[in-house]
């Protein structure tokens, strides 16, 4: 079940993906992702979208 903490973690996911968070925050997020399937899914979907965006560029160049 999604909690308020899940929403907070979600806000940090783009930064986490870019390794733009403190080491303490990084560990907190990592730990949460390992125990929360909802957030893990959000994280995977975010990575999926971003990985396909680079291919969108093919339409522009």
């Amino acid at each position: 079940m999604r909690t308020t903490y899940c929403s907070l973690v979600d806000q940090y996911l783009p930064k986490y993906l870019e390794d733009d968070v403190s080491s303490v925050r990084k560990e907190q997020i990592k730990e949460h992702l390992s125990s929360c399937p909802d957030c893990r899914g959000d994280y995977k979907r975010l990575k999926f979208v971003l990985s396909h965006l680079s291919q969108v560029e093919e339409y522009c160049s």
Partner: peptide, 10 residues
């Protein structure tokens, strides 16, 4: 704004 956009798009 970019980070927000990425989550919104997802």
């Amino acid at each position: 704004n970019i980070f927000r956009a990425r989550r919104l798009l997802r």
